[in-house]
Simulated scan of single mutants.
Amino acid sequence: MLARIRTQLYVARQGITRAWLRRVWGMTIGEGVRISRKAHLDYTHPKGVHIGDYTIVTPGVHIFTHDFVKRQHVSTYIGSNCFLGAGAIILPGVTVGDHCVIAAGTVVTQDVPARSVVAGNPGKILKSNIKTARYGIMGNLQPHELAVFEDDAES
């Protein structure tokens, strides 16, 4: 019972966070997106942050939309059903395709095609044509294993 209450509070907080980022900051944040409170989104050019549906942004991730040296403000796009590992850095102007997994500590300097696994500094594609479920979860998931994500569709 306590676990269910904790989960409901977490889902509600994520809904409030998404609404705050959309309405107050003007970011494009998809449905069901989960953003860690320790993630860093670029508030210098917040309208340049675009995150697709059911993507998870873990602690320490930095998503940049400005380049101070070049005096640029550009849009940075993260696709749907992606996983951004802890400490990953997404540089300004980069597009990460749908169903991508960005490994922890990766520095993404170039566009990433859909259905890719990227790791390293600078980020390199390790695997292509992967299959993921919501939040970039990989593997051969059975329908009953995906049921835990159905509650997020309503938030």
Rank of each mutant, 00 (worst) to 15 (best):
T44K: 13
G26V: 01
L41G: 05
I56N: 11
V69L: 15
P46F: 00
G60D: 05
V69M: 12
V69N: 15
I63S: 04
T44A: 15
Q72H: 05
T44E: 12
V69S: 13
I35P: 02
R37F: 08
P46D: 00
L41H: 04
G48L: 03
Y77C: 08
T55C: 05
G52R: 02
D53R: 11
I78V: 14
M27P: 07
L41N: 03
T58A: 09
G48F: 01
T58W: 06
S36K: 07
S75W: 03
K70R: 15
M27A: 04
T65D: 03
E31M: 11
D53P: 07
G52A: 05
I63W: 04
H66Y: 10
T55F: 06
G52H: 02
D53A: 12
V61W: 04
G60K: 11
R34P: 03
F64H: 15
H40M: 13
S36V: 07
H50Q: 11
P59Y: 12
T55Y: 02
R71G: 15
T58G: 07
V24I: 13
T65K: 02
H50F: 01
H73C: 15
V61A: 05
V61L: 01
M27E: 05
K38R: 13
Y54M: 12
A39T: 09
H62Q: 14
G32M: 07
R71C: 14
G60C: 08
K70G: 09
D67P: 08
T76S: 07
H62E: 14
H73L: 14
D53L: 05
T44N: 15
I78A: 09
R37V: 00
G26N: 00
Y54L: 07
H40L: 14
I51N: 01
S75A: 15
T44R: 13
I78Q: 03
H40F: 13
V74K: 06
G60S: 06
Y54K: 05
Y77D: 03
T28G: 02
R37Y: 10
